[in-house]
Amino acid sequence: MTAASTVSRDRMPEHSTTKIRTEGVSLYYGAFQALRNITLDIPERAITAIIGPSGCGKSTFLRIFNRMNDLIPGARVEGTIQLEGIDIYDRCIDVVELRKRVGMVFQKPNPFPMSVFENVAFGPRRHGGNNRGELADIVEKSLRQAALWDEVKDKLDKSAFDLSGGQQQRLCIARVLAVEPQVILMDEPCSALDPVATLKIEDLMRQLSNSYTIVIVTHNMQQAARASDISAFLLMEPDRAGVLVECGPTSQLFTSPKDKRTEDYITGRFG
């Protein structure tokens, strides 16, 4: 039994409903075990941050939630991962539909080589929407939600590459919002951005958390402290498998962590 399994659910805020439940999750790349026995609840309409040193499996863990690891040959998941009580690794799950419900924003802004409008309309079009009027509504709504509308409303037909890095990242968030997901996964969404653009994204995340469940992976502890409600600390064990050391309300984890290893990491004594 590892430390991972000792993290109990009673440290979650009492008012929250669990959106994603992981139970005894392990992940292997061939013979190599990347994650070991992780049990963690992701509360609904809150921001959960996953922190930990490089290589501890943060991104790998995040990618479990929309089965992005399926794309890696030899990757194998054990344990259960439930989205609203449904096992997302069940054979009858439509992965495309799952990824619509669980959207993802990546480290580097990755707009498509097309106009601002088409970037946001891309998802809804793929999912069957072709009515120009409806699409325009979706695009505007998504861009507004992503706090980008006022900056781009006059250049919807311009190439997305003309936008600044911070704007491109918010465009990618708008693109995710356009298909009306329930969960937004963010993998180091600000690591390519300057501090001002970073704070804008953090503020945006806060607004979005009123309607969406957000899980963010960040190597920036200060960002996790500032922007999240719940923090989960992952650490690599000697065999290089990532385990969950501690998870709890961010205000508690950053003021009085329960595990010495968490304290050592957030105070910069290792990592």
Partner: peptide, 9 residues
């Protein structure tokens, strides 16, 4: 105050 110092820098 302690929480805001720890979490909001």
């Amino acid at each position: 105050c302690i929480q805001i110092i720890a979490t909001q820098q």
